[in-house]
Design a binder for these strands. Structure first.
Length: 885
DNA sequence: ATTGTCACG
DNA sequence: ACGTACGTGACAATG
């Protein structure tokens, strides 16, 4: 058999792979796109060439002999991004396990080594293949040497032979050196001759073949301008030729025999591919090294039937007491938009579709409320809301693909079922975005062909079943089964109810406040223009910055990456230096109130019910908290009186009151429980004011002698502890010197030793395991903890400290929510849980149930969990949110 | 689509 | 020596 030598230009492939692919990231936060693309290209080339010999060449960092010739060589190269840098050692690790020889030199570049190898190969009569994305290699092509030139993407490859080069460029391979001498190379910062590009260059080389010959016959060049350019650039051309010529006699220790291809270390490769989540790579390995979970999805994934009578599923349900379902709808039922279809799949049966109008709702109610039939779904909250509207009380729903995936990795940006599917399976996907498009032209389900629509939802329902066991297994392995079944799944129904019920909102109250705000804004606007001496857009930070810092010469306190910072803390520091500052702060405040809380809220009041149905989201935050959108009801103003007035628009339902219950210091209590700090536990046990207690320790004064300022500062220290403290952060917050902040912290940790130890332990633990967890085993992976970059690592450490605290508090209130909701339901009370604000619950309470509700809320919230610290709940009632808080 | 700002816990 | 508090969502301006 003939010897075939595959020589790989590692550096160029690595860069090409990185820029050709989106930034892929593993669950642990490892970037893998360059590695993936690299391995893919190498494997493709190996498959194509079937080499007997193999080598990879890399550039090393630092200067090479070319820098001696021209100091600016590669001077235009930008710093490699961090995401790329990280992948570098991992590629080498893979190559090691592929048993490929890696060559690099402090003096020569990858192409010089490759040139030398191809020369060696040529001399021995090998067939040589150079795999690269760099055109420079064309000069190495000869009868025995071809270039595998990667094109756009990572799968396309051109095979460059002598003939192909002649055909494409009309010149000989070696003449590429001459061409580059003339046109230069911007990526390597080789100058060439100014004003000569590929076109002119090719024409000249075609005619004169070498630059020596060109300059010997310079008078034969047509065109005066061009001749001038050539004469002016002669030096540069010859230097560029030197720079652009690939060296072919780099001294090497290895002989060709050393590059003989050897078998891979499959065991190790399989391990790495798993870590990198390279499922398709695993498939290329011999059978016994493949990943078991990778499962082929076939076309039946998309099969379905349409039915006219829902009862057709009844016989299937006889054997399998399990079904997945999804309503297909373009809107919200509480906005009077009815679903178009219902998709159902009884386990192991075909997916069935039925028009919404054709549904026998009594039958639907029967199966949905049948405790013996388990239900599965994806984004079940949406479907439960629809069922609620139909008066159906779903029972025994046991899996929600979205919620499950969120528990497995809470830091993803979305939980699109197609993306989840791609992470578990190999093929057979349908992307909703491909179907509906995005942006302004986004279609609705109604716009789609019925066939496309059904195909997609058939995929969804089939995927729910395919994922069920895999996700549940993982959840079990990570000890989150109880968290999933006893907390998150029951909560889905609670959140569905909160969204469905909504909160009674009085638009007239908002209109009244609006009138006053409009007046205030008008006056402020005029006064600001007056002092600025011109009119401008006060809402534009850019324009405001110009007025304040260029025109009016206020001192610049802080800059953002685009210009001057005009944020409130900056303006705060400028207070007293001019009346305009206070006016801008006021203007900002009222402008915010108007846009977000007057206009914004008015726009989302349901016309028919006069209620606002905020969507409470369960899979958004990295810590386990719930979030609220459209509108966000978790950030209604309270800190300033003007803003707080907005709360008067949120009313109890007719004749009732709002009962508001909030946990007192829940995060600090959680911290006391987690750290088991004796002092802190003691303080809570004795019902002390925790900020006052902190102040007495930080400032070394008696508990009773703490003054207001000290308490205020101690409060900031406590916040800092919860956030993962830094002296700088505290100093900024309190506007005190960093040294003073450091002293506060040292005093604090010197006294609360349990907390100090806990913090160190938590960080170590996070670094070792790659994640931290809450009291109830909710997990958050923190790849930042092992970053080389100080800032990123510090950020990771603060996350490691904050997440267990914030997350455990979130766990606690979630448990309380489920208990309160279920108790209200069990007792058949009219009162409904309608809002959660992280440490606070609001129940829209019927008048005759007030005492009962207050009692049960306090009891269930304070005793929702069993901790070594007491939980304390404060209660308030009122006709509206202003009064109940 | 991104940035700056600001509302909340 | 590094430059920072943790977690969200909405809006207006601007690229």
């Amino acid at each position: 058999m003939d010897n075939k030598f595959l020589i790989i230009d590692g550096s160029s492939l690595f860069f090409r792979a990185f820029y050709a692919l989106p930034l892929l990231k593993t669950k642990r936060g490892l970037y893998t796109n360059a590695i993936y693309g690299f391995v893919m290209m190498v494997e493709n080339a190996i498959e194509k060439v079937k080499p007997t010999h193999l080598a990879v060449c890399f550039d090393m960092k630092g200067k090479t002999f070319r820098s001696e010739i021209y100091k600016d060589y590669k001077g235009t190269r930008q710093k490699t991004p961090n995401e790329l840098e990280q992948q570098w050692p991992l590629v080498r690790e893979i190559l090691d396990h592929m048993n490929v020889k890696i060559l690099e030199s402090p003096v020569y570049e990858a192409d010089d080594i490759a040139g030398t190898l191809s020369k060696l190969g040529t001399e021995e009569g090998f067939e040589n293949y150079l795999l690269t994305g760099d055109k420079d290699y064309f000069q190495l092509v000869n009868e025995k040497t071809k270039v595998l030139f990667t094109r756009k993407g990572i799968t396309d490859m051109d095979i460059m032979t002598v003939e192909k080069i002649k055909e494409d460029y009309g010149i000989e391979p070696l003449e590429f050196i001459e061409l580059k001498a003339l046109m230069g190379d911007s990526s390597d910062n080789i100058p060439g001759i100014y004003g000569i590009g590929e076109k002119t260059g090719l024409k000249l080389i075609h005619e004169f073949h070498t630059i020596e010959n060109l300059y010997d016959n310079i008078d034969d060049v047509s065109g005066k301008k061009l001749k001038e350019k050539l004469i002016d650039g002669k030096m540069s051309a010859f230097m560029s030729k030197k720079l652009g010529t690939i060296v072919k006699d780099v001294p090497l220790e290895e002989s060709l025999d050393d590059f003989k291809k050897v078998d891979y270390d499959y065991e190790k490769l399989s391990e790495l591919y798993r870590e990198f989540e390279f499922n398709s790579m695993l498939d290329r390995l011999p059978e016994k090294y493949r990943k078991e979970e990778v499962e082929e999805i076939s076309q039946d994934n998309f099969e379905f039937v349409e039915i006219k009578d829902l009862k057709e599923i009844e016989k299937d349900l006889k054997d399998k007491k399990s079904l997945a379902f999804k309503f297909i709808t373009d809107g919200k039922i509480y906005e009077d938009v009815k679903p178009i279809y219902l998709a159902v799949k009884v386990k192991d049966s075909e997916v069935k579709f039925i028009s919404y109008e054709d549904i026998d709702f009594d039958f639907l109610k029967k199966i949905m409320e049948d405790e013996k039939v388990e239900k599965l779904g994806y984004s079940l909250k949406e479907d439960i809301i629809i069922l609620m509207d139909l008066g159906i009380d779903i029972k025994n729903y046991s899996h929600d693909v979205e919620i499950a995936e969120y528990l497995l990795n809470s830091t993803q940006s979305d939980y699109d079922i197609n993306k989840i599917s791609m992470a578990y399976f190999k093929n057979g996907y349908l992307d909703l975005e491909d179907l509906l498009g995005k942006g302004a032209k986004k279609k609705t389900y109604t716009d789609l062909d019925k066939d496309d629509l059904f195909k997609y939802f058939a995929f969804v329902l089939n995927t729910i079943y395919r994922l069920e066991d895999l996700q549940k297994e993982k959840i079990d392995e990570e000890e989150m089964t109880s968290l999933y079944q006893d907390m998150e799944l029951p909560l889905v129904e609670v959140l569905a109810s909160m969204e469905y019920v909504g909160i009674n909102t009085d638009e007239a109250v908002l209109d009244e406040i609006d009138k006053q705000i409009i007046e205030k804004l008008k006056t402020l606007e005029e006064e600001i223009y007056e002092e600025a001496g011109e009119e401008f857009n006060i809402n534009s930070p850019k324009q405001l910055g110009v007025i304040l810092f260029d025109k009016m010469d206020f001192p610049v306190i802080k800059k953002t990456k685009t210009g001057y910072s005009t944020s409130a803390d900056v303006l705060e520091k400028l207070r007293g230096k001019g009346e305009i500052i206070d006016k801008i702060l006021d203007y900002r405040k009222f402008s915010k109130l108007k846009s977000t809380y007057i206009d914004g809220l008015k726009a989302v009041i349901n016309k028919k019910t006069k209620r606002i149905h905020s969507r409470f989201m369960q899979t958004v935050t990295a810590t386990g908290r719930i979030s609220s959108t459209d509108p966000n009801l978790q950030n209604i103003p309270i800190k300033t009186e003007e803003g707080r007035l907005i709360r008067k628009a949120f009313l109890a339902s007719e004749g009732g009151v709002l009962v508001d219950a909030d946990y007192s210091q829940i995060e600090l209590r959680v911290l006391a429980a987690l750290s088991d700090d004796k002092e802190m536990l003691d303080a809570f046990k004795h019902g002390l004011d925790i900020h006052r207690k902190t102040a007495s320790e930080v400032f070394h004064v008696d508990y009773d002698d703490v003054d207001d300022r000290q308490r205020y500062e101690a409060k900031a220290v406590n916040f800092g502890i919860v956030y993962g403290i830094s002296d700088y952060g505290l100093s900024q917050n309190l506007n005190i010197p960093r040294k003073a902040a450091k002293e506060y912290i040292d005093n604090y940790l010197g006294h609360f030793v349990g907390i100090k130890n806990y913090m160190a332990e938590e960080i170590k633990n996070g670094k070792d395991k790659g994640y931290v967890e809450t009291i109830f085993k909710r997990r958050r992976y923190i790849p930042e903890l092992n970053a080389k970059n100080f800032n990123i690592r510090s950020f990771g450490e603060r996350i490691a400290l904050n997440t267990p605290i914030q997350g455990s508090a979130a766990d606690i209130i979630k448990i309380a929510m489920v208990k309160v909701y279920n108790e209200l339901k069990k007792r058949n009370l009219k009162s409904k849980l309608i809002i959660q604000i992280h440490d606070e619950l609001v129940v829209d309470t019927a008048e005759d149930e007030i005492e009962e509700v207050k009692e049960l809320m306090k009891d269930l919230m304070e005793n929702s969990v069993d901790l070594n610290v007491k939980l304390s709940v404060d209660m308030n009632t009122g006709a509206n949110l202003y009064e109940s808080k």
